[in-house]
Amino acid sequence: MQGLARSAEQSGAAARNIESILEIERKDEEKLLLHHRALHAVGQFVGTPYFFIIQSLGVGLWIWMNIGESNWKFDEYPFPLLALLLALEAVLLTSCVLIRQNISDQAFERRNHLDLQINLLAERESTLSLDILRRLAAHMNCPIDQDAQCDELTKETPVDAIAQDLRASEEKDEEKST
Rank of each mutant, 00 (worst) to 15 (best):
L92R: 01
I118K: 06
L82N: 04
S70K: 06
Q101I: 03
Q55T: 04
G60P: 00
V42E: 00
Q106F: 02
L128E: 14
P78H: 09
E109V: 14
P78R: 02
C96H: 02
A122G: 05
F51G: 01
I54R: 01
P78T: 08
S56G: 12
V91Q: 01
A83M: 12
L84R: 10
I132S: 05
D75E: 09
W72A: 15
L133W: 07
S126M: 10
F79Y: 15
A41K: 08
P49Q: 07
F79W: 12
P78E: 04
G47N: 08
Y50T: 15
F74I: 04
H113F: 07
F51R: 06
P78L: 07
L93Q: 03
Q106E: 15
G58E: 03
A87H: 04
N112F: 10
R111V: 15
F74D: 12
S126V: 04
Q44D: 10
L86M: 12
L57D: 09
Y50G: 11
L57E: 10
V42N: 01
Q117A: 13
E125I: 15
L92F: 12
L98S: 05
W64M: 10
R124S: 15
L61K: 09
V97L: 08
V46E: 04
L88R: 02
E89R: 06
I132D: 11
V42S: 02
Q44L: 07
V46F: 14
L120P: 05
Q55E: 08
G68S: 15
V42D: 00
Y50D: 14
L130F: 09
